[in-house]
């Protein structure tokens, strides 16, 4: 596709010359502002972050000291930093579940179902909500009431309607991460559902009709028609899920503050930077995170090239 843009035709050589000049002019003019903004607000700060990672410095940037690779050495020798990646596993598993569930719901909503738009609308809405609102809502959702200062939270109230005993959801280190993953799925699944619906709807209706004529059931329809068609998107989503899982931050940060064994690498980075005033070390952590994301991206690119 690339080279076709201005395919020169010999009879128009002079004409093309004019356009070549124009092409450069347009390139410069169109890219001037975006590039200036990119350099100012992304590249210079990023280069600075790289420089900081070799320094010992606080948030105020006074008394800066060059420390070579000390920050990186500390990062890879003191297990308390990289070990925070462990919780990413929960979110990784969670996002696989999320993708599966989203795909399933999307498939259901694409079959002949009444009120499909209502279902879709309800499921999508949390995606549009403010992160703080979500955190407050889920603190109330998982609350274990004491009957004195407050009543049972949403989840326990429902459990008790069915006669079950209330549970301390966020206090129990064995289940708290699952609770957070649940909140994360609650918030983001609507986006995936809508996306998969779009993908499924772009499958030609002829194919469905043929299947219906042959009397295919829902599962057959999904497995033999829908899934093969949207496989590339599913693959892309899973790789994005890995990226999301290594850099997960907002949901645990705002609901539990990373306590009870819910901390993540990005939370640790923020604490290192702002609680302990180690901007240098935090920058090194950000660089490590960047490296991991770059590796995943490279794998993703390789994977998709192969498929094509």
């Amino acid at each position: 596709m690339a080279a076709e843009t201005v395919k020169p035709k010999r009879t128009f050589i002079q004409w093309i010359r004019g356009y070549t000049g124009q092409k450069y002019l347009t390139t410069v003019l169109f890219l001037l502002i975006p590039l200036v903004l990119l350099i100012l607000f992304t590249l210079i700060p990023a280069v600075n972050m790289g420089i900081f990672s070799f320094q010992k410095r606080d948030q105020l940037g006074v008394s800066v000291e060059w420390v070579g690779f000390d920050n990186y050495v500390r990062l890879f020798t003191d297990s308390s930093y990289l070990s925070t990646f462990a919780n990413s596993i929960y979110y990784l598993i969670g996002s696989f579940v999320q993708q599966g569930l989203a795909l399933f719901i999307a498939t259901l909503l694409c079959s002949k179902i009444k009120l499909a738009n209502v279902f879709k609308g309800v499921l999508f809405f949390p995606y549009m909500m403010n992160g703080v609102a979500v955190s407050l809502i889920f603190r109330r959702f998982f609350q274990k009431g004491d009957g004195i200062t407050n009543t049972e939270g949403t989840l326990n109230s429902i459990l008790m309607m069915f006669g079950a005993d209330p549970v301390k959801w966020l206090s129990n280190p064995d289940i708290v991460n699952f609770c957070l993953v649940f909140a994360s799925i609650w918030r983001y699944i609507g986006f995936d559902i809508v996306m998969y619906i779009g993908a499924i709807q772009s499958i030609s209706p002829d194919v469905y009709e043929a299947a219906d004529l042959d009397g295919a059931n829902a599962w057959q329809r999904f497995w033999y028609i829908i899934f093969p068609s949207i496989r590339p998107i599913v693959a892309l989503q899973l790789i994005l899920a890995i990226k999301g899982a290594v850099s997960v931050f907002e949901i645990p940060y705002i609901i539990t503050g990373g306590r009870n064994g819910t901390s993540t690498f990005v939370i640790k980075t923020i604490e290192t930077a702002f609680q302990y005033q180690k901007i240098g070390l935090a920058s090194a952590m950000a660089i490590v995170l960047l490296a991991i994301i770059l590796i995943i991206t490279a794998i993703q690119k390789a994977f998709f090239r192969e498929r094509k």
Partner: peptide
């Protein structure tokens, strides 16, 4: 309080 993880500063 029974469940410190969901304690309630506001309340």
């Amino acid at each position: 309080e029974e469940d410190p993880a969901t304690s309630d500063w506001e309340g």
